[in-house]
Computed example of a mutant assay.
Amino acid sequence: MQSRHIDLPRHELIKARLRIAGANMAQIGRELGVSHTTISSVSQGYSRSRRVEEAIAAKLSVGPESVWPERYENKDEDGAPMK
């Protein structure tokens, strides 16, 4: 089991970058059909969701591995563990 990496300062940075991009977590939640708290939990590191990570990263015009490099280290381009 992978340990969680809780990073509240990064979460605040993500929220600020989303605001600059004209988006917010509630908007992403509505687009995905999930609550804004789900989006926030993923951003903070309390939970994982590839779909949510990709949606946040898309709003920031980057890949999810740029936002959370530790979540994607040692993974191939499909997200599978590299041997």
Score class of each variant (00 low, 15 high):
Q2Y: 03
Q2N: 00
S3G: 15
S3H: 12
R4Q: 09
R4L: 08
H5G: 01
H5W: 11
H5T: 03
H5F: 12
I6Q: 02
D7L: 00
D7G: 01
L8R: 13
L8K: 12
L8D: 15
L8Q: 10
P9N: 14
R10S: 04
R10M: 08
H11E: 15
H11K: 10
E12D: 12
L13E: 12
L13A: 08
L13W: 12
I14N: 06
K15W: 14
K15H: 07
R17T: 07
R17M: 04
L18C: 13
L18W: 10
L18A: 09
R19T: 11
R19L: 15
I20G: 01
I20E: 09
I20S: 02
A21T: 04
A21N: 02
A21D: 05
G22T: 04
A23H: 14
A23P: 01
N24G: 10
N24F: 11
M25Q: 10
A26H: 03
A26M: 01
A26W: 02
Q27E: 08
I28Y: 01
G29K: 01
R30I: 13
E31W: 10
L32A: 10
L32M: 08
G33Y: 04
G33D: 02
G33E: 05
S35V: 05
S35Y: 07
S35C: 12
S40L: 03
S41W: 03
S41P: 00
V42T: 06
S43E: 04
S43K: 00
S43T: 00
Q44D: 13
Q44Y: 07
Q44E: 15
Q44P: 09
Q44V: 09
G45M: 05
S47V: 09
S47M: 11
S49Q: 07
S49E: 15
R50W: 14
R50Q: 14
R51C: 11
R51N: 13
E53K: 00
E53M: 00
E54G: 03
A55W: 11
A55F: 11
I56Y: 02
I56D: 03
A57W: 04
A57E: 13
A58D: 08
A58S: 07
A58H: 04
A58T: 02
K59L: 07
K59G: 07
S61N: 10
V62L: 07
G63H: 05
P64E: 10
P64I: 06
P64D: 13
P64V: 02
E65K: 02
E65H: 06
V67F: 01
V67S: 15
W68M: 10
W68F: 13
W68E: 13
W68K: 06
P69H: 14
P69I: 06
R71V: 01
R71Q: 06
E73L: 04
E73D: 07
E73Y: 04
E73Q: 11
N74A: 14
N74P: 09
K75N: 03
D76H: 12
D76W: 04
E77A: 14
G79D: 12
A80E: 14
A80M: 15
P81F: 10
P81Y: 13
P81W: 09
P81D: 15
M82Q: 15
K83G: 11
K83S: 09
